[in-house]
């Protein structure tokens, strides 16, 4: 699209036209990376790479707005096809994940829930976002029931919807939906490789799943201390400090309260059904 311009006559004096030509010759083509990198930065395209995790290699996708997807690494072509179908955006294999984002993801995978990982929330409902953000509050080594999330986000009856939202979590591990389990002690489903992987991740985080299941099967849901008269969810960091001698089990919140116990202010079991 060169626009031909005839400069003023004076420019030809003293050979200035030669300088003009030399300057025009300084136009260059853009680097081939400029367009794809700009589209990724704007969030109009994504890049992905593989990361090693506890459950094996995963593909993690990101754009300028944050992490957009995380899934078990299988066939890259299949992943790209699925991604395009779900997000309606182009995706390509990235040269490398941006340093800051990569470090933040690794810290989150290592159990640091306080590290900020930017997430691309576009296309997600406010309910889904509330569920995922609440799941982020559960510390590594602890679990909460679906009903706990539902109550905490102000929709106590939407337990099934919480399960659906967690199943739709686009970035498992980064958003620790594996820390949400059924109130009856079953581990529940898991999108990143099923219950086996969920069990492995929780065990690696320090959750004693066997005891948890055993306790639930015996009908007990809460643990209290007869010294503090406080009751907790079983995996709460305070519940785990109760010595066997002082440990008391309760089948329900009402039962605990009737026995004169108050709810722990850290794990807030009173909101859990």
């Amino acid at each position: 699209m060169t626009r031909v311009s005839s400069g003023p006559a004076y420019l030809n004096e003293g050979g200035l036209a030669q300088i003009e030509a030399a300057l025009r010759d300084l136009r260059v083509a853009a680097p081939v990376t400029l367009l794809p990198d700009t589209l990724v930065a704007a969030g109009l395209a994504d890049q992905y790479t593989s990361l090693h995790t506890l459950v094996g290699p995963v593909f993690v996708a990101w754009n300028g707005r944050g992490v957009s997807a995380l899934t078990l690494a299988e066939d890259p072509a299949v992943f790209e096809t699925r991604f395009r179908a779900e997000f309606a955006r182009p995706i390509s294999r990235g040269r490398a994940i941006p340093d800051q984002l990569g470090r933040a993801i690794q810290s989150r995978l290592a159990g640091d829930r306080h590290v900020k990982v930017p997430v691309d929330w576009r296309g997600r409902t406010s309910f889904e976002q509330a569920v995922w953000k609440k799941a982020l509050e559960i510390p590594a080594g602890e679990v909460r029931p679906y009903s706990w999330i539902a109550r905490e986000i102000g929709h106590p009856k939407a337990v099934r919807a919480v399960g659906t939202a967690l199943a739709r979590n686009p970035i498992p591990l980064v958003i620790p939906c594996h820390r949400v389990v059924r109130a009856d002690g079953h581990i529940g489903e898991y999108g990143l490789g099923g219950p086996t992987n969920k069990r492995a991740i929780l065990a690696a985080e320090g959750v004693d799943i066997g005891s948890l299941e055993q306790m639930a099967q015996s009908g007990m849901r809460y643990l209290g201390s007869d010294t503090t008269r406080i009751f907790c969810l079983p995996t709460c960091r305070h519940a785990r400090r109760i010595t066997l001698r002082h440990r008391v089990s309760f089948p329900s919140e009402m039962g605990a309260q009737a026995a004169g116990y108050r709810a722990c202010k850290v794990c807030r079991p009173a909101v859990a059904a």
Binding site: R27, V28, A29, A30, P31, L34, L35, L39, L44
Partner: peptide
Amino acid sequence: FERLVREHQARVFS
């Protein structure tokens, strides 16, 4: 937006 970048990238980069 992609068309904007495509059409103007060379001149902006230059």
